[in-house]
């Protein structure tokens, strides 16, 4: 289950999308997500589909890899679809026993599924083409204006990038603890839900202790390498917009224009 989540993973290939400035990609994803919720018609979704498919083609990330991320939200998809289909009032499509399916219900369910699927694919496309450190750099730079309101932007970005680095380390640790507990006769598979949740305690306690210990070690290591917050810190590769990034912004503006036109006309 954990391995199915492609959101937040990086897929290294050398494509135009990979080389774009992370700020462009963040902005693009935001515009795309907003556009998804503006569309009320199928014509709009054709525009979104064209945009998404061309981005996937540009990214050189295997389609299979992108769709794997959907497995994790399959349950949510089915759940929304069922609820929307059966519970929306409107014109009757089919009716049997006490259940009525309406035309509006089917329509709404289709929209919801499209929205969720496109949302997940769109945002995982961004993380697949951007290294975690690039992503946090982009966030730090594009949210820099929040410092005026005393938001600790640098610290938040640093925490995010550390969290991302330590996800694989902690996953491995969890695996090791589970095996160690199983080797001593712990049973995680049988019993009702309450018993199963209870059996997680002997995994979580050592995991938390080790996470805190690691955090302490890391803090000491960072301090001894002169870390003292964001003040006076430089970057090995400072972010800078190039010609490619400006072109990407032009494409985004065009997309936004098309979205608005389609929204008004159809």
């Amino acid at each position: 289950m954990i391995r199915d989540i492609t959101l937040g993973q990086y897929y290294p290939t050398d494509s135009v999308l990979h080389r774009l400035d992370p700020r462009v990609k963040l902005c693009g994803t935001l515009i795309y997500v907003i556009s998804l919720f503006l569309f009320q018609t199928f014509t709009g979704y054709i525009v979104a589909t064209v945009f998404l498919v061309s981005m996937i083609a540009l990214s050189h990330v295997p389609v299979k890899f992108i769709f794997r991320g959907l497995k994790a939200i399959l349950f949510i998809l089915v759940f929304t679809a069922v609820l929307n289909t059966f519970l929306t009032p409107g014109r009757e499509l089919v009716s049997f026993w006490k259940i009525t399916i309406t035309i509006e219900g089917v329509r709404l369910a289709a929209f919801m599924i499209l929205r969720l699927v496109y949302l997940i694919i769109g945002s995982s496309l961004m993380t697949l083409t951007t290294t975690p450190s690039n992503l946090t750099d982009g966030l730090e730079k594009s949210l820099g204006w929040l410092k005026v309101f005393r938001v600790p932007v640098h610290e938040i970005a640093m925490m995010m990038s550390i969290a991302l680095t330590f996800i694989p380390v902690l996953l491995e640790e969890t695996d090791r603890i589970i095996k160690a507990q199983q080797a001593r006769g712990a049973d995680f598979e049988s019993g009702n839900i309450i018993r199963r949740v209870k059996s997680l305690v002997p995994i979580l306690v050592p995991l938390f202790i080790s996470a805190f210990r690691r955090a302490n070690d890391l803090a000491i290591a960072m301090e001894s390498r002169c870390y003292h917050g964001g003040d006076g810190r430089t970057k090995m590769r400072p972010l800078a917009y190039g010609f490619r990034d400006i072109m990407a912004y032009v494409v985004l503006v065009l997309y936004l224009a098309v979205v608005i036109v389609v929204g008004i006309m159809f």
Binding site: T131, S133, T165, R214, A221, C226, Y227, H228, G232, R237
Partner: peptide
């Protein structure tokens, strides 16, 4: 060694200390 790596790429990790001191890119 695992608990003292800050970067996700070797190069980035090595650059961490000089970045903190504030050296030119």
């Amino acid at each position: 060694p695992e608990n003292q790596m800050i970067g996700t790429i070797v190069e980035e990790d090595v650059a961490f200390a000089p970045e903190n001191i504030g050296i030119d890119p």
